[in-house]
Amino acid sequence: DHWHVHIDGERIRLDGASEEFIRTLEELIRRGTDARELKEIIKEYLR
């Protein structure tokens, strides 16, 4: 599956992301997590 998110107007691909990770991201977004912080979390995950 190819997922991607838009954060700060930037399109970030989440290739190979699990549904669990996507749900976690959605939860963080709902909580109002800062965009820079979200991008860091995604970069760490994709390593």
Rank of each mutant, 00 (worst) to 15 (best):
V5Y: 05
D1C: 11
H2N: 14
K39P: 01
L38H: 00
K43G: 11
Y45T: 03
D34E: 11
T24I: 10
R11H: 15
R23K: 13
E10N: 05
A35V: 09
F21Q: 02
I42E: 00
H4T: 13
L46C: 14
R23Q: 13
R31W: 08
E10Y: 06
L14A: 04
A35G: 10
F21R: 00
G32P: 03
E26T: 12
K43V: 13
G9Y: 05
L25A: 01
D15K: 08
H2R: 10
W3H: 07
E44F: 06
L38D: 00
H4P: 04
K39G: 06
R23P: 00
L38I: 13
K39T: 08
L46P: 01
E10I: 03
F21W: 05
G32S: 04
E19S: 11
L25D: 00
G9H: 04
T33C: 05
D34N: 14
D1P: 14
R47E: 14
I41W: 09
R23S: 10
D8L: 03
H2M: 12
E37M: 13
E27S: 09
I29Q: 04
W3R: 11
E26V: 10
K39N: 08
I22E: 01
W3D: 06
E44H: 09
R23C: 05
E37I: 14
H4L: 12
R36A: 14
R47M: 15
L25Y: 02
R47H: 14
I22N: 02
R36E: 13
K39Q: 09
I7R: 00
R30Y: 10
E27Y: 07
W3N: 08
R47Y: 12
G16S: 07
I22S: 02
R30V: 09
I7L: 10
E37L: 14
R30E: 11
Y45N: 03
I22K: 10
I29C: 04
R13L: 12
S18T: 12
D8R: 02
D15P: 11
I12F: 11
A17K: 02
E27F: 04
I22Y: 06
D34R: 05
E20R: 08
E40W: 10
E27H: 09
R11W: 15
K39S: 05
I7K: 01
E40A: 14
T33Y: 04
H2G: 04
G32W: 03
R47V: 14
L38N: 00
I22L: 08
V5W: 05
I41P: 00
T33A: 11
H6P: 01
D8G: 07
R13A: 15
D15H: 12
R31Y: 08
E27P: 00
H4G: 06
E19F: 10
I7F: 05
T33S: 08
E26Q: 13
R11S: 15
I7E: 01
R31T: 10
I12D: 01
G16E: 06
E19R: 11
I42G: 00
R11M: 15
H2Q: 14
E19Q: 13
E19D: 13
I12L: 06
I12T: 03
E44W: 06
S18W: 03
E37Q: 13
E44M: 08
K39C: 01
L14M: 06
H2F: 10
R13E: 15
Y45K: 02
R31S: 12
E37F: 12
R36G: 13
E37T: 15
H6D: 15
G9I: 06
H6A: 08
E40L: 12
T24L: 13
H6E: 15
H4M: 13
D8C: 04
L38P: 00
E37N: 05
R13S: 15
R23Y: 08
E40R: 12
G16H: 11
A17G: 06
L28G: 02
E26W: 10
K43H: 13
G9L: 06
L28Y: 09
W3M: 10
I41V: 12
R11K: 15
D8P: 01
E19C: 05
W3Y: 14
K39Y: 13
L46V: 11
R11N: 15
K43F: 13
E40N: 11
L38G: 00
D8A: 07
G16R: 07
D15V: 13
E10R: 02
I29D: 01
I7P: 01
R13D: 15
H4Q: 08
R36S: 13
K43I: 13
I22T: 04
A35M: 09
E37S: 12
G32H: 05
L38Y: 01
R36T: 14
R23F: 05
S18D: 11
R11G: 12
W3T: 08
L28I: 07
L25I: 12
R36F: 13
G16P: 03
L46N: 06
D8H: 04
I7H: 01
L38W: 02
R23H: 09
E27D: 10
K39F: 12
L28D: 01
F21C: 01
D15I: 10
D8Q: 06
H2T: 14
E44I: 05
D15T: 10
K43D: 14
E26H: 11
G16K: 06
